[in-house]
């Protein structure tokens, strides 16, 4: 099956052509499954998340015009996977214990100012922080905390050593904390 380019698939969404859904799955299904699988343990949960993601894309494009369809879809499936994870936590179902979430949340642990940010400010500050990183640090940071990849996987994907990944993550977390500390002072 020939895979269409992102722009053409978005065009199909705008034409309300259901082929858009098949093309999206063909184009980035593997990436989306991998993204959800990094957060959820159950394969059936992952498949449900993928279906919900395709539905969400169908409902939101248009009016949404993704800058990158695969990046947009990754955001959607990650958010859906998180909702499902929280639901599982609430029900005290087993969850993926390997997630790097706690190491990221520890950045703001004991930082009383966290709640002084609105959700929008919180994300804007995060955007600004990401913009201040080098491309390599940003790639490592997002692979770890957006895609929830393991350190060995990141090292292998980016052709760098595991010690370098750990070091870049350590420095990025330190910088992130200082960004939120400074933000709260303003």
């Amino acid at each position: 099956m020939k895979i269409l380019e992102d722009e053409k698939i978005v065009g199909l969404f705008f034409e309300r052509n259901e082929k858009a859904l098949r093309e999206t799955e063909a184009s980035c299904g593997a990436l989306l499954r991998k993204t959800a699988k990094a957060i959820l343990e159950s394969d059936s949960d992952v498949e449900e998340c993928l279906n919900d993601t395709l539905l969400s894309l169908w409902q939101n494009i248009p009016p949404a015009v993704p800058k990158s369809l695969r990046a947009y879809a990754c955001k959607v499936i990650r958010n859906l996977a998180f909702k499902r994870l929280e639901y599982g936590l609430a029900l005290k179902r087993s969850i993926n214990s390997e997630l790097p979430l706690d190491e990221l949340e520890a950045v703001l642990f004991d930082l009383k100012t966290e709640n002084e940010f609105s959700d929008v400010e919180f994300t804007l500050t995060l955007d600004s922080f990401l913009g201040s990183l080098s491309a390599e640090s940003r790639a490592v940071f997002l692979k770890r905390y957006f895609f929830c990849d393991t350190v060995p996987q990141i090292a292998q994907d980016l052709c760098i050593s595991e010690s370098k990944v750990n070091s870049l993550l350590y420095r990025a977390r330190k910088k992130l904390r200082s960004v939120y500390e400074k933000g709260a002072e303003l």
Binding site: L31, P66, K67, S68, R70, A71, Y72, C74, K75, R78, N79, F82, E86, L89, L101, L104, E105, V107, L108, E114, D119, F122, T123, L126, D127, L130, A135, R138, A139, L142, K143, Y145, F146, F147
Partner: peptide, 20 residues
């Protein structure tokens, strides 16, 4: 719970595309 992790889900798509 997971505030930072969830905020990451709202970042600009440009960053995600860049990582990919």
């Amino acid at each position: 719970k997971y505030r930072l992790s969830k905020a990451l889900g709202e970042i600009d798509e440009v960053y995600i595309e860049e990582v990919l």
